[in-house]
Computed example of a mutant assay.
Amino acid sequence: MTTHGPVLPIWSCGGCDLPWPCPTRRRELRAEYADAPVSLALYLGGYLVQAAEDMPWASAGALHRRFIGWTRQPPEGRKTSDGT
């Protein structure tokens, strides 16, 4: 069980106090959902909806990048298929 869970309603990380999902939790989630990227996006989509209710001042784009947008990017240190 991770200590890097969200602290509501401010959506900071309970383990490191960074915005949640923090880099550590993102790595954990990538590993947990390695064979199910769509399930990961759906899981995080539920959190995005909750966060949007808790943080009405945050832009939809910023919340999307924070909760879902990173899931389509290769993990840090890995190159994409085009070599970048």
Rank of each mutant, 00 (worst) to 15 (best):
H64W: 12
R26G: 01
D82V: 13
P19C: 03
P23H: 03
L40H: 00
P9K: 04
Q50K: 15
S59L: 12
A31H: 05
A34F: 05
Q50H: 10
V38S: 15
A52C: 02
E32L: 13
P9S: 08
A31K: 05
G83S: 11
P9R: 07
A62R: 12
L63N: 00
P6H: 08
Y47M: 04
P9L: 06
A34C: 10
G45A: 12
G45W: 05
T2N: 08
K79C: 12
R78C: 09
C16H: 02
Y33C: 03
T24F: 01
L8W: 06
P75K: 06
Q73T: 14
D35P: 00
P23G: 13
Y33A: 01
D17Y: 04
G77M: 03
P19L: 09
R26C: 01
P37A: 12
T3H: 05
Y33H: 03
S12I: 11
E28Y: 02
A58D: 13
P37G: 11
E32N: 01
W20K: 00
C13F: 00
C22M: 02
Y47I: 00
G5N: 10
W20R: 01
F67R: 05
D17E: 12
L8N: 08
V7H: 02
R66W: 09
A58Q: 08
P75I: 04
A41K: 12
R27F: 03
P75N: 09
S81D: 15
S39L: 14
W11H: 08
L40S: 04
R66M: 14
M1L: 14
T71K: 02
L48I: 06
G15I: 02
I10L: 07
W70T: 10
A51N: 05
R26L: 00
R66N: 07
I68M: 11
T84H: 09
C13H: 00
E28V: 13
T24M: 01
Y43L: 07
C13S: 00
R30A: 11
G61H: 07
R78Y: 12
G77P: 03
L40A: 05
A62D: 14
M1E: 12
P23E: 13
P75A: 15
G46N: 15
P56A: 14
G45H: 13
A41Q: 12
A51I: 02
M1H: 14
R72K: 10
G83Y: 13
W70P: 06
R30L: 10
T84E: 14
S39M: 13
P9V: 09
S59Y: 07
P21V: 09
L42V: 12
F67M: 14
V49Y: 04
C22I: 01
A52K: 12
G5F: 05
V38K: 15
T84C: 06
T80L: 12
P21E: 05
R78S: 09
T2M: 06
M55C: 14
R25L: 07
T71D: 04
A60D: 10
V49D: 13
I10Q: 11
Q50T: 15
L44D: 00
I10D: 09
V7N: 06
E32C: 02
A60T: 09
G83M: 10
G45Q: 06
C13V: 00
P19N: 04
T3Y: 06
L8C: 08
Y47C: 01
P9I: 07
D54H: 13
L8F: 11
Y43C: 09
D35Y: 02
H4E: 02
C13E: 00
I68A: 11
G14T: 06
W20A: 00
M55K: 11
